[in-house]
Nucleic acid binder design. Structure first.
Lengths: 153, 153
DNA sequence: TTTGTGTAGTTGCATAAACAACTATATGCC
DNA sequence: GGCATATAGTTGTTTATGCAACTACACAAA
């Protein structure tokens, strides 16, 4: 349906996602200024573990929209920094359950505050209604592309 | 202004940009299926060169929202693949002007068609009005974060 | 029990990003 | 001219991504 009305020059920012890059960079900078030595990617994993600890790596793949090798290495690095621990599942020996350390738990409040601050900076002057529509569009885009057999590969 | 109405659980997709990631992956896949051995990042540089050849690396930095090392290495790889050539500027010997080879010129039509196809897949079921608003939001986010002295670094 | 198939996770390789430190050239001011 | 400063580009290091190939375990069917 939305075919010829979408001009090529404007297509580009959709594909490259410069807005989300800018948010990520700002959040990273805000972390650094607060002395928090965690990358945005690592934080995005912690974010899901704060919501629910003890998830498998596969669950983290689904939650963070990453493939298995990416999660393996993010968990590697988080383990090096003593922020998470791999605990083998007793029911299924293939599975690692990922648990947070005290250090990681203590990061939650501060980093979530910084994330909210960053988002507020980013969304200044944008109305609730616009945000809702933007979210719907992004979700629809994601769904459109995920339903085809791409992510199965 | 948009402060407490933005729920944390929804914040996440904004920051991680999974929609734009999905578009990029789909476009990459469409390239590959057509036998085009160019990464999305390389393509995004070519895209700006098709619009105007002979840009400096710094201009490509600004156009593609990347830092200088990133462009140096993307141009390195594009040169290896014989898609672009560095030509030292005669007026300012610090500057490399980047020109396209015949191979790169011949890629334009096919890859732009694939990019449009990919976008149409992504935006199926999204109305023009929604797209306009989403673009405005993303542009506003980008502007909000770029106006502060971050990209200067 | 064996065999096949699917799932969870890891490793290797290539590409790319962010950041810092560096070289070379240009430019403006004394 | 000579010096300070800014700009264009490169290189090194760390982290992350995508893809392919691999190991280990689970489960079901013969």
């Amino acid at each position: 349906m939305p075919n010829n009305q979408f001009k090529k020059g404007e297509l580009y920012s959709f594909i490259t996602g410069k807005a989300s890059t800018a948010i990520a960079r700002r959040l990273q900078k805000n972390f650094k200024q607060s002395g928090i030595e965690v990358t945005i990617e690592q934080w995005s994993v912690l974010y899901h573990l704060w919501k629910q600890e003890g998830q498998s790596q596969q669950q983290l793949c689904d939650a963070t929209f990453r493939d298995k090798p990416s999660i393996t290495r993010l968990v590697d690095n988080l383990e090096k920094q003593k922020l998470v621990k791999r605990v083998p599942s007793k029911e299924d020996r293939r599975i690692n359950l990922i648990y947070l350390t005290k250090e990681a738990l203590s990061l939650q409040e501060k980093t979530m505050a910084l994330a909210n601050k960053t988002l507020n900076e980013a969304l200044e002057g944008v109305t609730n209604g616009q945000i809702e529509i933007a979210k719907e569009v992004l979700q629809k885009v994601y769904d459109n592309l995920s339903n085809l057999p791409l992510t199965d590969l």
